[in-house]
């Protein structure tokens, strides 16, 4: 596993909360869980802290952890587990307070 990749985010200010979208920093396969037998890293409505893993992207035989870079609540998960994704694709919405 190499250094955690940078996240690219789009932010829309809205009252006291801010909705951000975590996008894929690389193409690959989207994984919601570390192992097929494990529970997903996050579900809609879960509270996450900065640095928490929300998903993995698998490419070139490595799994890259995608983390939240601010605390917040997980919104829509925009991609099916194990679906192919492109770099820049929106993955998970996050609402921070």
């Amino acid at each position: 596993m190499y250094e955690r990749p940078t996240l690219n985010r789009t932010a829309t200010g809205r009252n006291m909360t801010e909705e951000t979208t975590i996008t894929a920093p690389m193409p690959g396969v989207f994984y919601r869980r570390s192992d097929p037998d494990e529970a997903p890293f996050v579900e809609k409505g879960d509270r996450v802290e900065a640095g928490d893993v929300v998903c993995l992207v698998g490419v070139m035989k490595n799994f890259h952890e995608i983390t939240a870079d601010a605390a917040g609540v997980v919104g829509e998960i925009l991609v099916e587990d194990e679906a192919p994704i492109e770099a820049g694709q929106e993955l998970v919405r996050l609402t921070s307070e």
Binding site: Y2, P5, V59, N62
Partner: peptide, 10 residues
């Protein structure tokens, strides 16, 4: 000297 701040994927 070049310092690596973030290394990218590979």
């Amino acid at each position: 000297m070049i310092s690596v701040e973030k290394p990218g994927v590979l």
